[in-house]
Amino acid sequence: MRPKLNSTFNFGFFLRESLRAMRRNAAPSFAALAAVTVTLIVVGVFIPIVQATRSAANGVRGRVLVDVYMKDRANARADARVLGELKALPNVKKVVFESKAQALAQQRRQDPAAFALISGNPLPDTFHVYPNNPNNVLGIRAAIIGSAKRGASLDREIAKVSNQTQNTQKLLTVTRFVTITAALLAALLTVASVLLIGNTIRLSLYARRREIEVMKLVGATDWFIRWPFVIEGTIVGAVGAILAIVALGVAKAVLLDPLANNWTLIAAPHTINFVALVLVLVLAGIVVSALGSGLSLRRFLRV
């Protein structure tokens, strides 16, 4: 038999076919569109929330540090030595020195009345040691005070190391939990949206499986059948994304922006900006819908 190899990609034809299919199968197409829109609205709301949560948690974790108090008699040379020793420790990001005088000035500013009664300076020289990762803070502390058996601290000029083990532990646990929960929710939401969109598409394909069967019988190649579905998915995804963005934009303009002026949490600096969010949503909508159509079709192409 003469195999006619005419795989010319006729975009106009495929586009007309997909538009016709959407017109004729208005209900399933609308269901897919609604699924995409709703999912993207939820995702669009959730991305900034997850990001704000994470940046808040990171802000709290950023404040985790070890304070090292020097002995009263420590002189400038001892301070310099200890600074070097602290900086040499593993996992230390930075060490900030606060002299007796600076500490006094600081405290005085916070509580002028109390410090007016005190003569002299009872405050020691202090080092604020910041870990590179909040999780390492306890290890740094242990390194400074030395193991209990050895009984020797890092330097004999060190009087005391702040002991916030319990608080730090709690803080770390809570913030880690918050971060993991947010990430997990985001992952679940992504999976749920892909499944929802995929299922809706599959449903609309199922309604048209006879059509696909006929197409195969008259000798349509798999891609000839698939292209209109992929284009249809792309259109549904794009329209759904645009609808979702309009809804989000209206909500942002009406609800969030007035609040953001007097409520700093919402204007958190690390949340994604709106343009990037729009791009992410449009791309996600198109890719998920087009892929969903193309892949779901495979089941029905096996004739």
Binding site: M1, P3, K4, L5, K216, V218, G219, F224
Partner: peptide, 11 residues
């Protein structure tokens, strides 16, 4: 090649 084969059949 099955689709191309089927084009030679009427069913």
């Amino acid at each position: 090649q099955v689709p191309f084969y089927r084009r030679n059949l009427g069913v």
